[in-house]
Each structure stands twice: as structure tokens, then as C-alpha cells.
Simulated assay, not measured.
Amino acid sequence: MSLDLAYQHATDTGHNVGFSSVAAGNMSMTVLQQNQTAEDTAINRRNLEELLGITPGTTRFVSQTHSARVVAAGPSCWATLATQGEADAIVSQDGNDPIAILVADCLPVAFTTDYGPTAVAHAGRVGLLDGVLENTVEELRTLDADDDGKIYATIGPSICGRCYEVPESMRDEVSVQHPALYSETSWGTPALDLPAAAEAILRHAGVVVQRVEECTRENHQLYSHRRQPGAGRLTGIVWKPAISTNAVRHTT
């Protein structure tokens, strides 16, 4: 596995799931450091796509708003259209579209199925509580013609329950809805455990779940808004390789 990826695995359906690292560079067109431009991000995206066997410029992104909205991947991609619109999850109905979201502490959740479709979701505290994961699973289920397929989810690197400090009143309120959220930081203050809650939500929905046990705040090879606001965003991506992965990386 390349250093550009913090995690990657392939599925029996020929799909791949991956989460980028700081080594791959910032993947956001809007969260930029003072010396960065959108063209720098475009280069980072093309480099990563070539590395993964994705035709450069063809990955689909959304304009994330911490919502529970799910959209279908359209024919346009980031090189011709900035995003697929405002949403926090994307579904590829035939599983052939490379789809991605951006995070830097929130949860990147990648979905594959044994019947074809794929999805990827951005689940921060607000989106998770509003149902973005349940909505994504529901959209995938509507595409299961035989109604007997399996959905698999990989919860990627995110801030962990030892690091996501929140006011005590918030923790107590939201933990009523999702008890798995209740946590405490390593320094003894109230916290939320988003990965644990996401796993509980998905398992309750009948999804087969695995988690990448990497905390973005603790691991400096990952972007973290809490540790370093504005530094950049990593991407969670689901794809089928379309080209050789022996391409030469661009560096300018």
C-alpha cells in the first residue's frame, strides 16, 4: 500500500475502499493553507487518482454541509463540475463511478455491496444525529432488486472518543438518542465517540461493519481540524480501477 493511503482494501466485487493521508496532500478545493491554491489541490487529486487506477479528473465529490442528504453520482466529475451539489453522501447506482468525500476529524464511511452499488458518506456529529448513515443505507437497499443483498461499511480514520471533547450538556443530550456516543477524553472531560455510534447505527441496520482504528487528532499523518484547523482534508474514496496503476506521479 502506498504512503498516500492510510488504509486500503479490495472487495470480492472488484471495488476498492481507501482513505488518504497527509502524504497524498490536501484534497479540498476550499480549505487551503495560505500558500496553497485550488490548482495545488487539483494536482493532488490527479496524482492520487492515477495511483489508484482512476482516470484523472473523474472522481465525484459533493459540497458537504453537515446534512443527511444523499445524492446519486451523476455523469459529471470534479474536473468538469466542481461537485454533485450540496449533500453529505453519494451513491453510485451501478458501482462504477469513483466517489469520494472529504474529512478532517468527521467520519468517512465507505460502502460496498455484493449486488453492485457503492456509496460514501461524510458523518460529522450533526449529520450522524440527523441520519446520514441510515439514509445512505436506505438508498442502497432501494437498489437491491432481489432484496437479499449484503451491505458492507468501512468507517475510516476520524477523531476518537478519547479526543472529541464537548460540553457535558451536549454529551448527555445526544447520548439519550445514541448511547454509544457517551465517552470521556483521555484528560477526563466529557466527549463523544462518533465511530462507536456509527458502528452501532450501521449494525442495527443490518450492515457488515469494520473500523479503521486511527484517530485523526492523535495521528499526525492524518488531517485534523481540532489539532490543526485549516491544514487540509483527507479523502475517503470508493472505486474500481479503470487504468494501470503504474502511472508516473505528477509533482508540479
Rank of each mutant, 00 (worst) to 15 (best):
S76G: 02
A119E: 08
G188K: 10
A153Y: 05
A87I: 03
K150F: 09
R141M: 04
D147A: 15
A87M: 05
A79H: 06
T80G: 11
E134F: 01
A82K: 10
D147K: 13
P56R: 04
N96A: 13
L181T: 07
H66R: 13
R125E: 12
T80W: 07
D144L: 02
T154P: 04
V70G: 03
G53M: 01
S67E: 01
V132P: 11
S183M: 00
C106K: 04
E134H: 13
C160M: 06
W187M: 02
L102H: 08
A110D: 10
D114E: 06
D97E: 13
C163V: 00
G57V: 04
R46S: 08
I99C: 08
C77H: 15
S169R: 12
H122W: 08
V120W: 01
E184F: 09
D172Q: 15
L52W: 06
G124K: 01
Q64R: 07
L181A: 06
A87V: 04
V137F: 05
V176Q: 14
D88Y: 01
F111Q: 11
D97H: 13
G156T: 10
V176A: 13
H178T: 04
V166K: 05
V166C: 09
A73T: 02
T142Y: 06
P190R: 05
D114H: 06
A87R: 07
L102N: 12
A110E: 14
T83S: 12
A180M: 09
R46I: 14
Q177A: 15
L181M: 12
E138Y: 14
L143M: 05
Y152W: 10
R125K: 11
A145Q: 13
A82Q: 12
A119K: 09
T189G: 02
A145K: 14
G127F: 06
G156F: 07
P98V: 06
L128D: 01
S63P: 00
Y115D: 04
S67C: 01
N96C: 04
L140T: 06
D144T: 03
S186P: 00
G85L: 07
S183C: 01
C160P: 04
T136R: 05
